[in-house]
Design a protein around this nucleic acid. Structure first.
Lengths: 193, 193
DNA sequence: TTTATCTTGGACTGGTCGTTCCAAGATAGG
DNA sequence: CCTATCTTGGAACGACCAGTCCAAGATAAA
């Protein structure tokens, strides 16, 4: 009856994600997305709607396919404090070296855009998800008596969540990994018993 | 011999600073600056050069007239840990309430813009200035035996500098002051002896 | 093969961007 | 006053923006 799409929408979403991630939504034109994906205007607008809809889809995709797997890996690591330490090491590795060095985190970056409402929701989901996972990991550490007694675990989770955001932010300035690693060590060391 | 300017350039720079600060450089058009200041295109270009030059001037003004006074106040406060605690309280106050609530910090925000090179330099100056002042305050606290022994003061200063950046970032998402205050308490409490 | 329906390429729209340009206005030394 | 020189208002420029539209192409059921 009808024609069928000549492209894979999810692949296109992945390519659009890279463009928004590296250059930011505000500085990215629809033309940039078309160039990166090879689509024509018609196909893009027909499939994803306008730029704001596309950005919102990309944000959600990033949260689901980039952030949540990182959080899940931390959640699955039952070692307590070493699990948290490993999480930050991996985070700094991704932010300061390899394919995405200096790109920061798409969700952190979105704090500076005047994003649509749907995208703003993702910011709080992201923060809540990371905070919850860190809280759980701290609880494991506490149960293993790795932590000094009397710590406010919820507030400490918030503190470490903020630290992750700062790493995302500063990595965009091209900061080296080692100073960030040292800062994380300085944040975690005083927590031990 | 010649005509004289019909406006005060520094006042104009201050008004431009507010526009760039609230909305970001990328989302701010020259027309927005003209509207905010009442200048005509000719006067603005004739006095400050193009948009990038103006943004760079505004960045430096912000660092000198907004950030450095905050840092100087911390440096002048010789109480040690209470000085650091007060610094963060004031920071959170500015970021979450009053005239500039939800605006973040112009320099932090600049991490997400594709800024000119001259503006990028300000980022590192800002980071270095805050880190140095925090290091000095930690040294005072250590000399007063307020800190547990064996802390890496330089790395801890880096850690607290990152915390400040995270507060700046998250405040743009409209975060409440209290969770941030709790996070700061959780970051500082484990440092005490 | 015909036909109904979705997809696609790309021209086009109205608006905004940063910037340039020039004539008119303002100023202060002579 | 006169005049040289800077400032100012505002028109104009080409480039780009997000988004629309339609004819041509592709597809699969009948």
């Amino acid at each position: 009856m009808a024609d069928v799409k000549h492209f894979d929408p999810d692949r296109v979403l992945g390519l659009a994600e890279l463009v928004f991630w590296r250059r930011g939504a505000g500085s990215t034109g629809i033309q940039d997305v078309l160039t990166a994906t090879g689509l024509s205007r018609s196909s893009l607008y027909n499939t994803f709607g306008g730029k704001e809809d596309l950005y919102e889809l990309v944000m959600r995709r990033y949260l689901d396919q980039r952030s949540r797997p990182m959080f899940a890996r931390l959640a699955a690591d039952r070692r307590g404090l070493p699990a948290i330490s490993s999480f930050f090491s991996r985070l700094i590795g991704v932010r300061c070296s390899g394919e995405f060095a200096g790109w920061g985190c798409l969700v952190s970056n979105a704090h500076l855009e005047d994003s649509p409402v749907g995208a703003k929701v993702v910011l709080d989901e992201h923060q809540a998800a990371l905070s919850i996972v860190l809280h759980a990991a701290l609880k494991v550490a506490d149960d293993k008596h790795q932590l000094r007694p009397g710590l406010d675990l919820a507030a400490t989770a918030e503190h470490l969540t903020l630290l992750a955001y700062a790493i995302n932010l500063r990595s965009r300035a091209g900061v080296q990994a080692e100073p960030l690693q040292a800062a994380v060590r300085a944040a975690l060391a005083p927590l031990v018993v």
